[in-house]
Design a protein around this nucleic acid. Structure first.
Lengths: 160, 160
DNA sequence: ACGATATGTCTTGACGTCAAGATAAATGCT
DNA sequence: AGCATTTATCTTGACGTCAAGACATATCGT
């Protein structure tokens, strides 16, 4: 009887006509992701990066040399709107972690380039981040992890 | 090879030293919840409610007669900060969906009461919402749903 | 009784996000 | 070549969220 069960039993009592079968999965998914997101954020903040800043820096870092992508590329990889991406880049540029360089091939466009400081920041943060991720799932057995990953993959496929 | 696989293979190439095992589950959880949240929001907006407004109204509704809870009670049931709850209540009060009534037992406190309009709004919205939830998981088989729910329950238990 | 502590709610200021639309350059069509 | 359309990025304004702390009232311990 966890919190989601309580919510469902309240609905059951008040609105027995509703089919609330789906509420368990979706409620637990949402609560779980909120908890996980907060845990992730905490560790990144200890390294001076918000999740959203890390998100961009990590995308640049893992894209490989020369660690440059256009805002449009970043957009396509990060599930945020163009306005959000502009804002993220602005903040990172102010912090000195990226710089905008002209795209010689397309004057509408610009490339976001990781600076030395940006590279260093993401390089240390990512180590702590993946260790933290590992910690967050350590309570699941290997079989649980494999089963969960397979189910999430199948579920996610409907949306992307 | 979904988007999360691509991210992982990039990290694999760039930082083969990192143990990125956990990234699959956590990345898919996050992406999935983002997609689901957007789908849920869309349906609620069609009924004139944001997710956060619905969250509060639904908590009051399912608490049963007389559909009144203190901000503190609402806080305990909704994973948001006190400032966020104050703001949500302010907006709902402006919209005429709830009203603040004095708590006779504790003058520090106040009760948030669903108005007639608030009751009507949540009553129609919740029907559409649960139908939408049902739609969102319809791609999963009954076995998948049961397995996913069990895994999420176990995982979530670590955090609450 | 009364001072110290705890509790309940709200305020403030800073972020992060989005949708819609503005701006500029590139591309396609005739 | 020249105009229309598309593409790439940024701007604007509105929301929702949080942490930290302010404020008022209750409760506890002596």
């Amino acid at each position: 009887m966890d919190r989601v069960d309580k919510i469902m039993s309240q609905w059951q009592r008040e609105r027995p006509d509703l089919d609330i079968e789906a509420m368990g999965i979706l409620g637990r998914l949402k609560r779980l992701t909120t908890h996980l997101g907060r845990e992730v954020e905490q560790v990144l903040l200890q390294h001076g990066l918000s999740s959203s800043a890390f998100d961009v820096l990590a995308t640049l870092r893992r894209s490989g040399e020369p660690y440059r992508l256009s805002p449009g590329d970043l957009l396509a990889m990060t599930m945020v709107s163009s306005g959000t991406m502009t804002n993220r880049i602005d903040q990172l540029e102010k912090a000195g972690f990226v710089e905008r360089v002209l795209n010689p091939d397309d004057r509408r466009s610009v490339l976001i380039a990781l600076t030395e400081n940006g590279f260093a920041a993401v390089e240390t943060a990512v180590g702590a981040h993946v260790a933290n991720q590992q910690r967050l799932i350590e309570n699941l057995s290997d079989e649980d992890k494999a089963a969960l990953d397979a189910l999430l993959r199948k579920f996610l496929a409907k949306f992307e």
